[in-house]
Simulated assay, not measured.
Amino acid sequence: MSVLDSIFIGVVVAAILFFIGTVYFLVQFAVIRRKIQKLSTRRVKNKKKKQLRKRLNQLKKKKRRSVTSFVVFLLLTMSFSGGSFYISYYQSRNLTTEDSDLVVKGYYLLRDFEEQLLKAGNQEEDEIKIQQNIRYLAATLASYGTKKASNVNSKEGQLALNRYYTSLMQIGMNTSTQTKNFFANMDLVGEFLNDADRIKEYEKAAFEYYQVDESALLEE
C-alpha cells in the first residue's frame, strides 16, 4: 500500500467519524430544544419557578454547546470529505508507483528491442549474442500479459494503460517464436519495427493521459 493510499484511507475514516459526530450533535440539539419547549410551556408554582429557570438556563447552555459542536463537526466533515474526493481524483489522474515503474520499464524495453532488431538485421554483432538479447527482451515484454492497470485509476486511464501493456505482451510473444530468424533478415525486422511503432501510439496515448514527460525519460 502506497503512502497516498494510506492517507486516503485515513482521510475517509476521519470524514466518517466526523459525520457521525455531526449527526450526534444534531440529534442532541433537537432533543434539548424539545425539552426547552416543554419546560417553557409548563405551569409551575411560584416556589418552583427559580428551579425551573435554572434548569432552562442549563439546557440553553447545553443547546449552544451542541450548536457549536455541530457546526465544528460539520465543517470538519466537509473538509475531510473534500480531501478524500481530491485524493481520489488525484489518484485517478496520476500513475501509481507500480504503474509508473511498468510504464518506464516498458518505454526502455521497447527501444532496446528496436535497437537489437536493427543490429540483427544489419548483422552488427555476433548472431548468438543478438539472439540471446532478443530472447530476453521478448520474454520480458511478454510478461506484461500478467500486468493490469491499478483500479484506482479512472476507467479511461485503465483502458489506456491496459492497451499499452497488452501490446507489449503481444509483440513479446510474437518475437519469442522468431528469435532465430531476425539475423540478416531486414524484411522480418521491418515488420516488427512497424509493430513497435504501433505500440508507440498506445504508449503516446497513455503518456498524454497521465502527462508523462517523455523528455525526462530520454535524458536518463
Rank of each mutant, 00 (worst) to 15 (best):
residue 2 S to R: 00
residue 5 D to F: 06
residue 6 S to R: 11
residue 6 S to P: 06
residue 7 I to V: 14
residue 11 V to A: 08
residue 14 A to D: 05
residue 14 A to K: 05
residue 18 F to N: 04
residue 21 G to E: 04
residue 21 G to K: 08
residue 22 T to F: 12
residue 22 T to E: 03
residue 23 V to Q: 02
residue 27 V to S: 04
residue 28 Q to V: 11
residue 28 Q to K: 15
residue 28 Q to A: 13
residue 30 A to P: 08
residue 31 V to T: 10
residue 35 K to W: 05
residue 37 Q to E: 14
residue 39 L to A: 06
residue 41 T to C: 00
residue 42 R to D: 08
residue 43 R to Q: 12
residue 44 V to A: 03
residue 45 K to S: 12
residue 50 K to R: 13
residue 51 Q to K: 13
residue 53 R to S: 13
residue 55 R to K: 14
residue 56 L to W: 09
residue 57 N to I: 04
residue 58 Q to H: 12
residue 61 K to S: 14
residue 63 K to S: 08
residue 66 S to V: 03
residue 66 S to N: 09
residue 67 V to T: 05
residue 68 T to Q: 03
residue 70 F to H: 04
residue 70 F to R: 01
residue 71 V to G: 05
residue 73 F to M: 11
residue 76 L to V: 01
residue 77 T to I: 06
residue 79 S to N: 01
residue 82 G to K: 07
residue 85 F to K: 07
residue 91 Q to Y: 03
residue 92 S to Q: 09
residue 93 R to Y: 06
residue 96 T to Y: 01
residue 99 D to W: 05
residue 101 D to R: 13
residue 102 L to A: 01
residue 103 V to M: 06
residue 105 K to F: 05
residue 105 K to P: 04
residue 107 Y to A: 05
residue 109 L to E: 03
residue 110 L to I: 07
residue 112 D to R: 00
residue 114 E to Y: 08
residue 116 Q to D: 09
residue 121 G to E: 10
residue 123 Q to N: 02
residue 123 Q to Y: 00
residue 123 Q to D: 01
residue 124 E to G: 04
residue 124 E to H: 06
residue 134 I to M: 06
residue 140 T to S: 15
residue 149 A to W: 09
residue 151 N to A: 07
residue 152 V to M: 07
residue 153 N to G: 08
residue 155 K to L: 12
residue 156 E to W: 06
residue 159 L to A: 15
residue 160 A to R: 13
residue 164 Y to M: 03
residue 166 T to R: 11
residue 167 S to C: 05
residue 168 L to C: 08
residue 172 G to V: 04
residue 174 N to L: 12
residue 174 N to S: 12
residue 176 S to K: 10
residue 178 Q to F: 05
residue 179 T to F: 00
residue 186 M to R: 05
residue 189 V to Y: 07
residue 191 E to Q: 15
residue 194 N to V: 13
residue 194 N to D: 14
residue 198 R to C: 09
residue 199 I to F: 03
residue 201 E to S: 08
residue 205 A to F: 06
residue 210 Y to L: 08
residue 211 Q to D: 07
residue 211 Q to K: 12
residue 212 V to W: 01
